[in-house]
Design a protein around this nucleic acid. Sequence first.
DNA 1: TGACTCGTTAACGATAGCGCTGATTATTGC
DNA 2: GCAATAATCAGCGCTATCGTTAACGAGTCA
Lengths: 107, 107
Amino acid sequence: MNDVDATLAALADPTRRKVIDLLRDGPRPAGELAQAVQMSPPALSRHLRVLRAGGLVQAEAGGEDARLRLYTLRPEPFTALQAWLDQVQAFWAEQLGSFKNHVERGR
Amino acid sequence: MNDVDATLAALADPTRRKVIDLLRDGPRPAGELAQAVQMSPPALSRHLRVLRAGGLVQAEAGGEDARLRLYTLRPEPFTALQAWLDQVQAFWAEQLGSFKNHVERGR
DNA sequence: TGACTCGTTAACGATAGCGCTGATTATTGC
DNA sequence: GCAATAATCAGCGCTATCGTTAACGAGTCA
């Protein structure tokens, strides 16, 4: 329902998650990323498009060489995912609610 | 690399994420989950198998009626995912490192 | 025992995702 | 202008995944 779907779909692929890990060390041009994950530039370009569509990364026009597209991480989807994760983990926080839920659902 | 791959693959499907959200309110039998997501029991059973394989859920033998399999959330994969998320978000924590990375990579 | 329910497994058709090669656009430097 | 480079787009097979129906063990109750 939320955009968390798109975020998780983007992170599902191991290649894309590796790209995220690579970008943790700083911005990288697309070609360098393709070489790092041992993949043809067109294949990685598709992955980058998915990551862009999900808002996980952002392509800046490289200042020095305009042919290079420097990719950078964007924080929003990750904070949204963390918010959802916190909600899920609240399940164990309210351990005393394990019987409260039974009552609420009337079992 | 890690088992985070399996976790994210399991969470990628919207149906499976909805199951997780449903289980936040407490354990549910498989049939009730299938009805909640408007899906045939076999289809949901496959999703539950994926969630089980990833360790996100656990099937307990229902005490009252042994035919029912009550599914419950398991914490481990979520804490592992949170750990990875924290690593990624550390990228913005060290904002001053944006120039440090340039130096390290010798651009 | 026999009818019924719960859940899973098996087999099938349809769809979507992945990675490749080849072509296209934009930019650099001679 | 022209060759070379960076990145994306387009088209093509391939595999995996998803959901459905049908068949199968397991458990309940008369």
